[in-house]
């Protein structure tokens, strides 16, 4: 399992963080997600064998946000 941070600048309220965190229940291989609207950060702990960084970025994009790996 690895932990990675992504910059998500286009969250515009605390609800956006909640939406992004819901990926935790939806995307296989995600162990935990913490989204911070204040910091514009998404911290994802995931299993590399089950999900890739690119898949996470794509899932975030499907929700209408842009994630840039840090």
């Amino acid at each position: 399992m690895i932990k990675k941070q992504f910059r998500v600048e286009d969250m515009h309220c605390a609800n956006c963080a909640l939406r992004l965190e819901s990926l935790e229940d939806r995307l296989p291989g995600i162990v935990s997600i913490e989204a911070s609207y204040r910091k514009g950060l998404l911290t994802v702990a995931f299993d590399e064998a089950a999900v890739s960084e690119a898949q996470i970025v794509a899932a975030v994009e499907r929700l209408g946000y842009t994630a840039r790996p840090m």
Partner: peptide, 12 residues
Amino acid sequence: AGSLARQIEQDL
């Protein structure tokens, strides 16, 4: 916004 979380599930 949190209380409208069911909508979020729809989005996902």
